[in-house]
Lab assay of single mutants.
Amino acid sequence: MAIVADHLGLSWTELARELNFSVDEINQIRVENPNSLISQSFMLLKKWVTRDGKNATTDALTSVLTKINRIDIVTLLE
């Protein structure tokens, strides 16, 4: 997760939308982690794993990252 969080940057909100997080949930992550995109990205991934449990797999994440054109991160995960 740390590799993904380190590289997402501003794309974390796009990833959040693709992972079916609501606008309110995205804003809450922003408010709770106001000074760091990496912290926002990491919190998103943590919430995703908590919410989706065993369905929050590397394959699922890779699929969504591909959908938002972040092949650079997919390559890092391989």
Rank of each mutant, 00 (worst) to 15 (best):
M1D: 04
M1K: 06
M1C: 09
M1T: 02
M1E: 07
A2Q: 14
A2V: 10
A2T: 15
A2D: 15
A2P: 09
A2L: 10
I3S: 06
I3A: 08
I3D: 05
I3F: 14
V4A: 08
V4M: 00
V4S: 03
A5Y: 03
A5I: 03
A5W: 03
D6H: 12
D6G: 10
H7K: 13
H7G: 03
H7S: 07
H7F: 05
L8E: 00
L8F: 06
L8R: 02
L8Q: 03
G9F: 01
G9D: 05
G9A: 05
L10K: 10
S11T: 07
S11K: 03
S11I: 06
S11Q: 12
W12S: 00
W12Y: 02
W12N: 03
W12P: 06
W12E: 01
W12R: 02
T13S: 11
T13E: 14
T13L: 11
T13R: 07
T13A: 10
E14W: 06
E14F: 06
E14C: 08
L15I: 06
L15R: 01
L15T: 01
A16C: 00
R17T: 13
R17G: 10
R17D: 09
E18Y: 04
E18F: 06
E18S: 04
E18I: 03
E18N: 15
E18P: 00
L19P: 02
L19S: 00
L19H: 04
L19M: 07
N20P: 00
N20V: 04
N20I: 04
N20D: 15
F21N: 05
F21E: 00
F21S: 01
F21Y: 07
V23E: 12
V23L: 12
V23C: 08
V23G: 13
V23H: 14
V23T: 13
D24C: 07
D24H: 12
D24P: 07
D24Y: 08
E25P: 00
E25W: 01
E25G: 02
E25H: 02
I26D: 01
I26Q: 05
N27G: 02
N27C: 08
N27E: 09
N27P: 01
N27Q: 14
Q28R: 12
I29G: 01
I29W: 00
R30I: 15
R30K: 13
R30T: 10
R30G: 06
R30F: 04
R30Y: 12
R30H: 05
V31G: 11
V31N: 13
V31Q: 14
V31S: 13
E32R: 10
E32S: 09
E32T: 10
N33E: 14
N33I: 08
P34K: 05
P34T: 07
P34N: 07
P34I: 00
N35H: 08
N35K: 07
N35D: 12
S36H: 07
S36N: 12
S36D: 15
S36Q: 07
L37I: 13
L37N: 07
L37Y: 10
L37F: 08
L37A: 11
I38N: 15
I38E: 15
I38M: 14
S39Y: 04
S39L: 09
S39V: 09
S39E: 11
S39H: 11
S39D: 13
Q40A: 12
Q40T: 03
S41L: 00
S41K: 10
S41Q: 01
F42R: 15
F42E: 14
F42L: 12
F42G: 15
M43S: 14
L44Y: 04
L45G: 01
L45C: 06
K46V: 07
K46N: 12
K46G: 07
K47W: 10
W48T: 01
W48G: 02
W48R: 00
W48Q: 02
W48P: 01
W48N: 00
V49G: 09
V49I: 12
V49L: 12
T50D: 15
T50C: 12
T50Q: 13
R51A: 03
R51K: 05
R51C: 03
D52M: 03
D52R: 04
D52V: 05
D52K: 07
D52T: 04
G53P: 10
G53Q: 12
K54D: 08
K54H: 14
K54I: 15
K54P: 11
K54F: 10
K54N: 07
K54E: 10
N55C: 10
N55T: 10
N55E: 11
N55W: 10
N55S: 13
A56E: 05
A56C: 08
A56R: 05
A56I: 07
A56N: 05
A56W: 06
A56L: 06
T57W: 00
T57Q: 07
T57E: 02
T57S: 10
T58A: 12
T58F: 11
T58D: 15
T58E: 11
T58M: 15
T58Q: 14
T58C: 10
D59I: 06
A60S: 10
A60W: 06
A60V: 13
L61Q: 03
L61W: 00
L61C: 00
L61M: 08
L61Y: 00
T62N: 06
T62K: 15
T62R: 15
S63L: 14
V64E: 13
V64M: 15
L65P: 04
L65T: 05
L65G: 02
L65H: 00
L65A: 00
L65V: 03
T66K: 11
T66I: 11
K67M: 14
K67S: 08
K67E: 05
I68V: 08
I68S: 00
I68N: 10
I68D: 02
I68Q: 02
N69Y: 04
N69D: 09
N69T: 02
N69E: 13
N69A: 07
R70W: 02
R70A: 01
R70E: 05
R70L: 02
R70K: 06
I71E: 12
I71A: 11
I71C: 09
I71W: 13
I73V: 08
I73T: 01
V74F: 00
V74E: 01
V74H: 01
V74W: 00
V74K: 08
T75L: 14
T75R: 13
T75Y: 11
T75Q: 14
L76P: 06
L76E: 09
L76W: 05
L76S: 09
L76T: 09
L76H: 12
L76D: 07
L77W: 05
L77S: 05
E78N: 13
E78S: 11
E78T: 12
E78F: 10
E78K: 13
E78W: 04
